[in-house]
Simulated scan of single mutants.
Amino acid sequence: MASLGIVLHASLICIVLLTFFSGTASRNIANEILQRLEMVEKLNFDLKKENSNLKLEMIDIKGELKDIVNEMKVWMKSRHSQGNNKMNESNSDLQKENIKIKLEMAELRDQMDNVVRENCEMKKKWNELDDILISVYIHLNKSKPEIQSGIMPEHRTPLSYQHVAENRKANSVRSVQRIVPPAPDVTEQPVAFYAYMDSYHTPGLPIHTTLIFDTVQLNDGHGYSKHDGVFIAPRTGVYVFHWTIQTEVHSWESIEIVVNGSPIGCAASDTLRINDYGTGSGLVATRVNTGDLVFLRTHESISGYLLSNHRLRSSFSGWLLYS
């Protein structure tokens, strides 16, 4: 429509020119105008065609962009779904592993409870056996004729502290029977002993472990034995007992003195918070009857090291004060 208007407008101009001008000049002007009009019309046609092509390309590009956007949405949705599935699977695996660990911990707690109960039962049985053993020793030492005849057994084999301790743990009771002879003259024969640990450096002794002092310096009356660490009173009287226990740095020990299985005194050493050696010592005076058993043992489980060497001696001593 626009080109038709341009042509009509140009025709009108040509008519006007032919009316006012005549001859060759007017015709030349009219021809030139028509040529230019044709060129303008052709250019306008080409522009319309190019515009139409551009519109078609734009439509194609929009379609392609729309497809790309849809594909991106589908891909992102798929990736998101896969990520959620993997996270859900990981969470599920973690939950299963957590439940498995909880079950194993519950089983371990039950096993620990059973071990604790069995340990308590074993300690009770040990104490019962210890009481029975003490009663048997007392009975034998009071009733056997060897005690009055002064027979001293020579067949006992010396044992190390560790060996004796292991045998006690394994067998609960010692099978070696001690027979302590009384003094020939009970009114004059002195009773006294002193012994120490020659070399000792052992960690973590359990509760109620009997201490054995293997080096004997004095043993008048032959009441103390270096093989089991027990003093058996040769005769009735009031005795004084003294002990000294050395401990390594950062250690804790509590040692009690026992007469026939009953504690009558206790002493402790605590170096857990200090960087130095410790010493625990105790002194008791008590009445002891003929055949009574006196020894030292751990009151609690020892934390750290019990020590004895040429600089620090752990020792045990006792003597009859009067009868």
Rank of each mutant, 00 (worst) to 15 (best):
A2N: 05
G5I: 05
I6A: 10
I6W: 00
A10W: 03
V16K: 05
L18D: 00
E32V: 15
I33A: 12
L34Q: 03
L34P: 00
Q35H: 13
E38T: 15
M39F: 07
M39V: 04
V40H: 05
K42Y: 01
K49L: 13
E50M: 14
K62E: 14
E64N: 12
L65F: 11
K66T: 13
V69Q: 13
M72C: 13
V74S: 07
V74A: 10
W75Q: 14
S81R: 09
N91A: 09
Q95M: 10
N98I: 05
I101N: 07
K102S: 12
E107M: 02
R109H: 10
V115S: 12
V115M: 13
V115C: 06
C120P: 00
E121D: 09
E121G: 01
D131K: 08
L140H: 06
S143Q: 09
K144M: 13
G150Q: 06
M152V: 15
R156Q: 15
P158D: 08
Y161V: 12
Y161G: 13
V164Y: 14
V164E: 07
E166S: 13
K169R: 14
S172W: 14
R174L: 11
P181N: 04
T209C: 12
I212E: 06
N219Q: 03
D220G: 06
S225R: 02
H227Y: 15
G237L: 06
Y239R: 08
F241H: 06
E253H: 10
S254Y: 02
I255D: 04
N260M: 00
S262L: 11
P263T: 05
C266W: 00
A267I: 01
A268D: 04
I274Y: 06
G278N: 01
T279A: 10
S281C: 08
R287Q: 12
T290E: 12
L296E: 07
L296G: 09
H299I: 00
S301Y: 02
Y305V: 08
L306W: 00
S308V: 04
H310A: 10
S315L: 05
F316G: 05
Y322H: 13
